[in-house]
Nucleic acid binder design. Sequence first.
DNA 1: CTGAAAGCGCTTACAG
DNA 2: CTGAAAGCGCTTACAG
Lengths: 334, 334
Amino acid sequence: MPITIADVAARAKVSKTTVSRVLNGKGELDESTAARVRAVIDELGYVPSARAVNLARGRTRVVGMLVPSLTWPWMGEVLQGAVDVLEAEEYGLLLFTCNRGDDSMRQFGAQVAAKSFDGLLVIEPEGTLDYITTLHSRGLPMVLIDDRDQLSGGQIPTIGTTNHSGAADAARHLLAIGRHKPLVITGPARFGCTVQRTDGFSSVYAEAGHPISDAHVMTGDFTVACGADGVKQAIALGLEFDAVFCHNDLSAFGVVQAIQDSGRRVPDDVAVVGFDDIPMAAHHQPPLSTVHQPMREMGEAAARTLLAHFDGTPVPNRQTIIPATFTVRASTQA
Amino acid sequence: MPITIADVAARAKVSKTTVSRVLNGKGELDESTAARVRAVIDELGYVPSARAVNLARGRTRVVGMLVPSLTWPWMGEVLQGAVDVLEAEEYGLLLFTCNRGDDSMRQFGAQVAAKSFDGLLVIEPEGTLDYITTLHSRGLPMVLIDDRDQLSGGQIPTIGTTNHSGAADAARHLLAIGRHKPLVITGPARFGCTVQRTDGFSSVYAEAGHPISDAHVMTGDFTVACGADGVKQAIALGLEFDAVFCHNDLSAFGVVQAIQDSGRRVPDDVAVVGFDDIPMAAHHQPPLSTVHQPMREMGEAAARTLLAHFDGTPVPNRQTIIPATFTVRASTQA
DNA sequence: CTGAAAGCGCTTACAG
DNA sequence: CTGAAAGCGCTTACAG
């Protein structure tokens, strides 16, 4: 029932080889022959079977993408960036998550072994870097989207952003509006991005002559709850603060809530800055000043880098960095 | 270099047919032969090539998913639900969006024609229902996730939710807390869900003896801005209202903002209810009472329905409805 | 410029 | 219980 290359060949009275040539624009063909074949293709509505083409060519024109979860606030942006680029180049995107734990990774590993896709885009699920590195060293083309600034050993091509300078920009802004006593709610200490953001922020304050005490830096975990808890704890400890720098937007939302619950105003009494610039940040009450991570651009860059690799373009030397940019909104200015 | 079924066969001194049998557990084999083959498979780390299996079997074990955009607030939930189910059954998910307009659809159509996947999950991009219906009638197995309650002609199996009764629940709650003058900010009038939600909400108020005037129903477009605009307009018109029912959470966020900007309090002066229950709803200030749409469950159900169809299970009669549930939070109670 | 044939790496009747 | 052979639907040397 489904029509094949043989049907086209028969009807156009040429060989399958010739049909294949007009399909792929390879070899010199007589223009009239080509036209005849094209007419038959249109007439029959023939489209080559992806399955057969994949086997014959030894590739799939599909890129895999492995992400920890699809429900993180900024994940949609990364995915959209990657899909847009891949789709424009007629590649498909096969999606994998780790939502079901080890079983998910087993499933994923099986697909890798079966060569279900030509290359991989990955936002590293925590604890899988060794495994990912192994896959890379075995020859699986891949590009890492390093949301955590982990410096993956340097072997795997990586797209990153500027955690250090993004945080420094936030510090400069807070200093500029006269805030000298910031509280910091960090991400998990084991993440590179946490180290970078803490560092970038603190060093600017230190240089300005307002070093931040250890007591003012509280370890969080990127949840709304950790932001609220941090503020409550600071208040309970009697810490003075006129600003809060959070390592992500969700915790900043929690911070705003706890501050308002304590009867203080944002930004009048306490200015609040987040990190990420998730879609909700602009719509929050008050709109959140935050360090914009270029998630969509990172997704696009990762996809472009991988495709370029397929075409033989040497992968850019290690890291590609797309700068994060500070965005001012009402949570830091009246 | 990559090892094939022929390598395994040679090393185990059996035919490729026999290797294939132990791989797929088909036919009676001598247990000792099977054991020997399995040993060789393990030893060589052999995994059958997905490309070859796909061609030989005439299927791909891949499901396509077409969505309008990946950056909508609830999209991650639907995707995660679908991916979890597919992955557990060793299916892959090939992702398509319409972000680049007609060109996206052309690309998608090419993949369909090439039979790159066995079936399709679709959240209908606006204006593509005819095309989708055509694909279905041509034999592409598919399940629609009908976020807009459009009653797709009845031919395509569909997963939906209870827009009418969800809105009715919201109305009962507002009546229960003594709100008799609600404002309604709807979605686009052309959507079925808008009609259902307006209807479900209004009928409860009418039955309770508090019919809603047309002036109190304002057409929105699911954006934050439309919510804020609706409230400002209502105030400008001098309309009295003690509650606002919004057809989605984003517009409810805009409503809260405009109400507070006008110097009124939520929920004391005006109670606010949304629809969707996107992840941010619980973290909003104040936390938003809203009608929870079971997006993840809908994604799961869609995937399960499609897989069941592959196994020959007859598709459930038309619509599968997963109820929406009203969720009370601080935006409607002090 | 064009075609016959082998090959991609499996699965599946068909025989024995 | 096991294997030889054909077939899935293309692409790609190799010849002419």
